[in-house]
Design a protein around this nucleic acid. Structure first.
Lengths: 218, 218
DNA sequence: AATTAAATTTAGACTTGTCTAAAAATAGGT
DNA sequence: ACCTATTTTTAGACAAGTCTAAATTTAATT
């Protein structure tokens, strides 16, 4: 099987491919992995040697079919464990990421299939992201930033981009929490702020806030 | 915190200290860890530098207080995960060791305390071994080999030493299973075989069998 | 098309944990 | 007490994954 580092790189490439359609750049990957570009180049060569990515020097990387399959397996494990932590062990949705980051590398097919069954084959993790099934199929995420939601439209709060204590505290104070419904009443073009309604309250939030809050639409 | 390798060495030393009261020898540790004596010496030096073991050249190692505490934490995690796998994910007691071997290295105090609570603070793992509590206290194991059980005494089957498929199949065929009560009716000195009763059946087993079956006494 | 800036790759080094082969220390038998 | 066999340690090397610094390629600007 693949090493912990290899799996983490595959996962990062998978996530970055959404924004880098023509190939994930070395620098983007270095930033995502919190490492140096030179280390990324070394690892890309190894992944390429194992047929996990397609790579041409200076042209960025794309996952191969095998690489994509492997990345999805890791993501499946990550999200199932997050669901387990929140639903069974009473963790808060913002505490689970680092632990799932470790658990996702445990090697045992049976463990994951049994865990999936035990949890009742959940379709989404606590952040609203879809959980791939054993075949690697999963719903396309309809998660967007609140800032992208149009006027008069409604969505459900499913996650944060900035998970700093300050930001979470601000959300708490304003009664913005996971699972709550948010409707956009007004959008100001000059500063990007918006007026929203949440649980019968009206509230004006800045673009910084709406750019760091994920919502799910239908 | 400590590395995966370091934790595994501490665990191995902890287990070997039962038989090597005056210090665990380099060779014994090498065999347990399935590595070479020279690698063991290197690692012992590192553990010694971190104050996890007391070490004098050529004299073997003993765990320090910190080392013992750390080893017990790892063992606690291992046994809690084994319990989880059997009780919640429907694993068989003989399938869980390798997975628990990976899970025991996940770093999160809260994860383990929540898991412990979720499982109902179990006292023994599926093999009958005691699970240390959060303070590191645990019952002394009264697990012995069936071969060591005296005539007319009774015990409960809690594990196997040889876990080969052949042996497990033999046990199945003779209705010997985890949790069942076994009484020694006769012991033959000339070949070490014994006559036992299990669920109202009488059965003669060779010394090879009784030397590979663990039972718990009271 | 030439020059410069930015991105990427290479070269060489370091750490962790392992190995082999050789040297040193201990223990047992006489 | 000495010699030998065994155990343990040292020395030097290697693979994985990372780093810094330098070299190379690509992209952008004039």
């Amino acid at each position: 099987m693949f090493s912990l580092s290899e799996e983490n790189y595959l996962k990062a490439i998978f996530h970055l491919e959404r924004s880098y359609k023509s190939g994930v750049s070395t620098n983007a990957l270095a930033e995502e992995m919190e490492t140096k570009a030179s280390s990324v180049t070394d690892m890309i060569k190894k992944l390429s040697g194992k047929k996990l990515v397609n790579y041409r020097k200076y042209q960025g990387v794309k996952l191969s079919e095998l690489g994509r399959k492997t990345a999805i397996e890791v993501i499946r494990k990550h999200r199932l464990w997050e669901y387990f932590l929140v639903e069974k062990l009473d963790f808060q949705w913002d505490e689970v990421h680092d632990i799932a980051e470790q658990l996702e590398h445990i090697k045992s097919e049976k463990l994951i299939s049994q865990l999936d069954k035990f949890l009742g084959f959940p379709k989404r993790d606590p952040h609203g992201d879809p959980i791939p099934d054993a075949q690697g199929n999963f719903a396309v995420s309809n998660k967007i930033l609140l800032a992208e939601l149009e006027k008069s439209k409604t969505g459900i709060c499913v996650g944060v981009k900035d998970s700093s204590v300050d930001f979470l505290r601000f959300l708490d104070k304003n009664n913005i929490a996971l699972g709550k419904e948010i409707k956009v009443l007004e959008k100001e073009t000059f500063d990007g702020s918006m007026l929203i309604s949440i649980e019968n309250n009206e509230l004006r939030i800045s673009q910084v806030v709406s750019n760091n809050l994920y919502i799910k639409t239908y």
